[in-house]
Amino acid sequence: MLESAGVETSIARIEGHDVRVWRKGRGPVVGYLAGFGGLPKWTPFLDRLARTRTVVAPSLPGFPGGGSWHAKLDTHLDWILAARQIVLASGLIGADLVAGSVGAALAAELAALWPDDVRCLALVSPLGVSDRVQPTTDMWAQRADELPGLLCVDPDVYTRFTAKPENADAIEWTVEQTRASEAGARFLWPLSDTRLASRLHLIKAPTLLLRGAGDRVLPNGALQQFRNALRCKAEVRSIAGAGHLAELDCPDAIADAILGWCESGGRHA
């Protein structure tokens, strides 16, 4: 099953592209932009958020549910405007925004360029800022059998997450996963540095930065540079037992940290 019980699927038609929007839960809306590989399936992390919040998870271009829109996005501005239209169409203006990895680089751009449209921001291992001495690990130059261990502390978690469901077409499932990887690469090639650091000072929303202590993709130094570029309320936390895709490794710990941050409006900072 791609979706868990209670997940509603709608399709937003944007510039001729169909974008899947998943929604579940009750309470104040929280938007979620997924990281590397997108959301081939609903996740326990989103279920955990949905206990007390209405989770709205639109697909990014090229990610599962996002079609092939990415192939039309040639510039960084194209990507930002596509993401802006997606959050507009998903009803996420003024909501809390949560994102990871690739998605977090875009979420930060949105929060910087439309600072009044994001209430609270929580970013898990955000890309977009890369240390010049120690760059992010190249996720796009990996052997297939090594990728799960690079992205998650527990490789089996990633392997299960990306395993083909029984009723899915094997070829199309693989093509979809490759397309998602390509979309991230198209946006972030080659160093996952979009010069985002120069725009982070524009963010007003209280910003929580989370990083798995076992993150083998994003060096801690890059996250510190990200933090140092912010002028808003901000806090960095390390999550034990989690890797780059920390929401997959430790769904409860990540969700608890985010919910606490958003409920307090970042007042702990």
Binding site: W140, A141, R143, T178, R179, S181, E182, G184, A185
Partner: peptide
């Protein structure tokens, strides 16, 4: 090194299929 064999997007979806 085979990790350099297939950067995503280098091979089109049609060729993959």
């Amino acid at each position: 090194d085979p990790r350099f064999a297939a950067p995503p997007g280098y091979t089109s979806e049609e060729t993959q299929r």
